[in-house]
Design a protein around this nucleic acid. Structure first.
Lengths: 196, 196
DNA sequence: TGTCCCATGTAACTCGTTACATGATTGT
DNA sequence: ACAATCATGTAACGAGTTACATGGGACA
C-alpha cells in the first residue's frame, strides 16, 4: 500500500512514465521510500487495472514507445483517502538495535566495523537530506516546483512545508543514528579496557 | 536472516520451546524485533533441518508434548558469524516521513490524528524501553539474568552493556519520533492560521 | 463444565529483492 | 562502432502477515 501511495503522490503532480518514476525513486521520493523497477512497473499496471491510473503509449524515436501514466479521479480520491486515514505504527523491527543487543557474540573488529558503517551511512544520508531540505525551502527542487505549478497558489505554503518537514524528520533520524553509533564505538573502547 | 539471528541469540542462553520464544518475542527481544508464532515455528524447524538447532520432545501432562530446541555448535558458530559480519544499512523506507511529505492531500483532522497516534505510540514505547533499560541495568530482568548464569563472569559486563545500549538506542529513537510528531502538530497549527 | 492458557500447526497472500533478459535511442 | 542511457519486462525466491484450525492442561 505504501508503494501505491508513493506512486499516486508522485503522479498527482503530473503524468509520468515508469522510467520517470524510477528516476524520482532514485532521488527525491526515493530518499524516503526506495523501490526498484521490478516493483514499480508491475504495480503501475495493477493500479491501471484498478482504475487508479490511465495510460497512453507515447512514441519515442521511429520504433520505440514508452507508456505514460496519469492519475484518474478515482486515483485522486484513493490518494486523499490514504493520506487522511491514520495508521497505527507497526511493532518495532529494528535490525541495528537487535544486533547491538547481542554484541557479545561479535568479535571486536566486526562490531567496530558495523558501527563505523552505520556512522558513515547516516552521515552520508544526513548530508543528502539536509541538502534536499534546503533545496526545497529555496524553491530550487525541480520535482517540487513541477508540483507547485500544477497546484493552486493557496496550497503552495502547505506543499513546501510538508516536504521540508519530512526531510527534516529524516535528518533528525540520521543525527540520532550518528550519535548512537558514536556511543557504540565509545562503548567498544570501554569494553576493551581491562576491568578494575 | 534477522529472525534467525534473533532465535539463535535467544537460544544461546538456554534451550527453549517455540512457545517460550513466543513469550520472549512478546516482551524483551520482541520490544526490538517482533515476530508471530506463524513465523517462529516453521523457522525453528528449518533451522533444525539446517543443523543449527537440535530438539527433543518433552512430555507435558499424560498426553501432550512440547518440543524443546537447543542451539548446536554449528548454530553457535552461525550466531558468531552473523554477529561479526557488518551489514550495509539498507535504502531508507520510511512510511511516516513519506506520508508527511504529502500532507497536503490529507484532511486536517486526518493529519492531526496521524501525528497524535504517532506521538502516543512512541510515548508508550519510550516508557517500555526505558523501563527495560533500567531493569537490565539493575540486574532485575529474568531473561538477561538467565543468560548471565549461562555465561562466564568475564562476559557479564559486556552482556549487560550491550543490552542497555540497545534499549538506549530504542529510547533515543522514540524521543526523536515524539519530538517530530510534536513539530508536526505545531506545523498543522501554523498551516491552519490565515496567511499574512 | 467452562474458560483461560499452553502448544503448534497449515494455507493463502502481499510485499520486496535478486537474477536474468531484451531492445531502441542518443551522443562520441 | 560503441557505450551509456532510455525503457520495460519475467521468474524465482524470501520475508512477513492474516486467516483458519486443532487439541491438551490447569483451575474455578
Amino acid at each position: 500500500m505504501t508503494l501505491r501511495f508513493a506512486l499516486l503522490a508522485s503522479l498527482s503532480a503530473r503524468p509520468r512514465t515508469g522510467y520517470d518514476l524510477l528516476q524520482i525513486f532514485d532521488s527525491s521520493v526515493g530518499f524516503v521510500w526506495h523501490a526498484a523497477h521490478t516493483q514499480i512497473y508491475p504495480e503501475l499496471r495493477r493500479m491501471e487495472a484498478d482504475g487508479l491510473l490511465a495510460s497512453v503509449e507515447v512514441p519515442r524515436g521511429p520504433k520505440a514507445h514508452k507508456r505514460e501514466y496519469r492519475i484518474t479521479d478515482l486515483g485522486l480520491s484513493a490518494l486523499r483517502q490514504l493520506a487522511s486515514t491514520p495508521v497505527e505504527p507497526s511493532p518495532e523491527k529494528d535490525p541495528y538495535r537487535l544486533k547491538a543487543a547481542y554484541l557479545e557474540w561479535a568479535d571486536p573488529e566486526g562490531a567496530r566495523a558495523q558501527f563505523e558503517l552505520h556512522l558513515a551511512h547516516y552521515a552520508r544520508w544526513l548530508k543528502q537530506w539536509q541538502e534536499m531540505q534546503q533545496r526545497i525551502a529555496d524553491g530550487l527542487d525541480p520535482v517540487v516546483n513541477e508540483r507547485l505549478e500544477a497546484r493552486p497558489a493557496a496550497e503552495h505554503r502547505t506543499i513546501v512545508a510538508a516536504k521540508v518537514f519530512a526531510y527534516q524528520g529524516m535528518s533528525s533520524r540520521a543525527e540520532m543514528e550518528i550519535e548512537w553509533a558514536k556511543q557504540g564505538l565509545a562503548l567498544l573502547d570501554t569494553l576493551a579496557e581491562p576491568q578494575p
